[in-house]
């Protein structure tokens, strides 16, 4: 099957397959990302996020399917892809013994950016990253959040239209993460096309569209709000100081498939649509005591857990 209107999608992946020594890592994944869009690949370690991204940036070869970058086949246009894509690997991949400025200049030179343009871009990048005051500090001496911003800045030195980030906020505190995402949103509003992977569920809400990935398969993909609507069972939260006790008790009953443990309580999925009164009666029958029983709106994590089964 030929992809339709590929040219409008700077990134287009169709039926991608990849195995490592017969162990499938990615199975039939299809993703398209538009200009001005942030697409989030959401999933745990080992779900296949990094494999998909490395194939897209030409660091790995696919076993099957079609991967197009700017309408061109990636495996046949390796040099074009590498010269034009912006890629930030999962591991911090800058030179720790080079200063902030030296790193930026190095990547500017690597991508043949003329010196006077480099100077202009440095200024702009220092502005939004707030790295200006630290330009002579060694990259290895930066805090986690600043390292990520520097990595992003280095990649922006050649002003790529397509930006691919592999777990850019891994191990970074929530405040720095929020700042980082502000920058990503700004880039998207400037018309860039962004593909971001993350294991943080809360970052999924910041993407325009997301794909939930598990064991190499795309469980679902759409806008976060639309996806949540797919969770069409009533959901209740049983609040308690000791949610694990309630969870363990319920797990031993036929409700095993109805419950999810969260930090703030046990979530009860009303699969049979039996209604809150009925459920509370059943809880009482089982001698389960709790602080509060309330209907709640589902989250992406509820959905993910549901889809993983």
């Amino acid at each position: 099957m030929k992809p339709i209107v590929t040219m409008t999608f700077p990134v287009s992946i169709q039926n991608l397959k990849k195995s490592y020594a017969a162990v499938p890592a990615v199975q039939n994944v299809s993703i398209q990302v538009q200009k001005g869009e942030i697409y989030g690949l959401i999933g745990p370690d080992g779900a296949g996020k990094t494999t998909i991204i490395r194939i897209l940036v030409s660091l790995l070869d696919a076993d099957g399917g079609e991967v197009l970058f700017m309408g061109r086949n990636v495996s046949q246009n390796v040099r074009y892809v590498r010269s034009n894509i912006g890629y930030m690997p999962q591991r911090f991949s800058l030179y720790r013994d080079l200063s902030v400025r030296q790193n930026l200049r190095f990547f500017g030179d690597l991508f043949h950016v003329p010196r006077h343009i480099q100077e202009q871009r440095l200024k702009a990048l220092y502005d939004f990253s707030k790295l200006g005051p630290f330009q002579n500090r060694l990259a290895g001496a930066l805090s986690g959040g600043m390292k990520q911003k520097l990595a992003l800045s280095c990649m922006l030195m050649h002003e790529p239209d397509v930006i691919v980030l592999d777990e850019p906020t891994f191990g970074v505190d929530p405040v720095s993460r929020a700042e980082f995402w502000d920058i990503l949103k700004m880039l998207a509003s400037n018309g860039k096309c962004l593909l971001v992977s993350t294991a943080y569920m809360d970052e999924a809400y910041l993407c325009h569209r997301i794909g939930l990935l598990d064991k190499g398969r795309l469980l679902a993909q759409n806008k976060p709000q639309v996806l949540i609507e797919r969770f069409d069972f009533p959901l209740y939260r049983i609040r308690s100081e000791q949610p694990h006790k309630i969870y363990t008790q319920l797990k031993a009953t036929y409700f095993e498939k109805h419950i999810q443990l969260f930090g703030d309580g046990v979530y009860f999925i009303d699969r049979d649509k039996s209604g809150s009164a009925a459920i509370r009666r059943r809880l009482a029958d089982l001698n389960i005591t709790y602080d509060k029983f309330e209907p709640v709106k589902p989250t992406l994590e509820n959905l993910f857990l549901e889809l993983m089964i």
């Binding site: 779900a47 891994f170 694990h244 006790k245 363990t248 999810q260 443990l261 930090g263 857990l305 993983m308």
Partner: peptide, 23 residues
Amino acid sequence: EPTSGVDPASRREFWLLIYELAA
């Protein structure tokens, strides 16, 4: 940071263990 990158289902199993240890 015990559960970095662990899938949601495994995370829950891990937290059950933690609760049991606390208990």
